[in-house]
Amino acid sequence: MLAFLDATVGKWLRHFFFVLVRTYYALFYNVSCANKHLLQDQHGTLILATHVSRHDGPLISALLYSTMRIRPTVHYHEYYNWVQWFPMMVAGAIPMSSPKSWPEEKRKARKTQTLQAIRDSLARGDSLLLFPAGRVRRQEREIVEPYLSGVHDIIRAQPNTPLMLLKIDGLGQFQYAKHDLFWSFLGITKGRRHVSVTITPIEKLDTSMEREAFNAHLETLLND
């Protein structure tokens, strides 16, 4: 029943949200995307993205909407925020992590449930958007903390999962802001902000490495 609703009502709602979000970014941002076509025939891809602002999730989802089904992963608290829950549920977002106040056994069970949901989604051919740093960048470079295990666990469980690296430039607090003259007819000289998105394949990530070393390598990829 849930699958039927997702494929019918959910599909219409996703398209409605897509039109709203895409219109917003078209009006206030000048966005370009390189190599989007690489995702066209690459189903079940894990997309590892830099996280430079709170716009990243909706911007990427709207930008790639017509390419294939993209399911974002979000922090548990963000997913269950009453303001955000409905659009995230419609988008098929997968909540990750869990409240630290939970007992350890409950947190482990939640992690197992989340990884299974991710495996099922990838197996269906959906692509998954994940921010390895886990939070919006608060400094010039991405930092993947040694204790984070999401990417390592997913790839270790499904080593043949196609991987893509997605980098956003021009949107974050620590990135150069350049604007066009889209609104100049109103006398506004600072128009839409230029944002570039680049997608590149990742050949392989070695999960035989210790998690700390794996995260350090992933951090290097995100910042190069």
Rank of each mutant, 00 (worst) to 15 (best):
E203C: 14
L2H: 13
F182Y: 13
I188Y: 13
L181T: 14
N35A: 03
R137Q: 12
L171V: 07
M88P: 03
T207C: 03
R156V: 03
P58F: 04
T207W: 00
A177S: 13
M1R: 13
E105D: 10
F182A: 15
Y79F: 06
R141V: 12
R22M: 10
A109C: 12
D206L: 00
G57T: 14
I202V: 06
A123F: 08
N215F: 00
T112S: 13
P87Y: 04
D126Y: 00
N215M: 03
G170L: 06
H152D: 01
V9Y: 15
T112W: 11
F28V: 02
D120C: 06
P58E: 01
R137L: 11
L181K: 15
E145A: 11
N160C: 08
H194F: 11
W183Q: 11
H75Q: 15
T45R: 05
I143Q: 10
I154F: 05
R14H: 08
Q173H: 15
A62R: 04
P87H: 05
V136L: 03
S61H: 15
S53K: 02
N223D: 13
I202D: 02
L129P: 02
S101H: 10
E212Y: 12
I154P: 00
K111N: 12
R54D: 15
N223W: 10
H77Y: 14
Q139H: 07
V31E: 01
P146A: 04
W85V: 06
P103W: 04
L130C: 05
V74T: 10
L165N: 07
I118R: 00
K111A: 10
L2E: 14
E210I: 08
A123C: 11
L166H: 06
Y80A: 05
S208T: 07
R22F: 07
M89Y: 15
E145S: 06
F16L: 09
L129A: 04
G187N: 01
V83I: 14
P201C: 03
K106C: 09
D6M: 05
Q158T: 06
E140S: 10
I47L: 02
F17H: 02
P87M: 01
D206M: 02
D169K: 08
Q113E: 15
Q113N: 11
K11T: 11
E104Y: 10
L122I: 04
F86H: 13
L39P: 04
L46N: 00
Q40V: 14
S66L: 15
S149C: 07
A49M: 07
T23C: 11
M209P: 13
N215S: 00
T50A: 02
K36A: 11
I70A: 01
R156T: 06
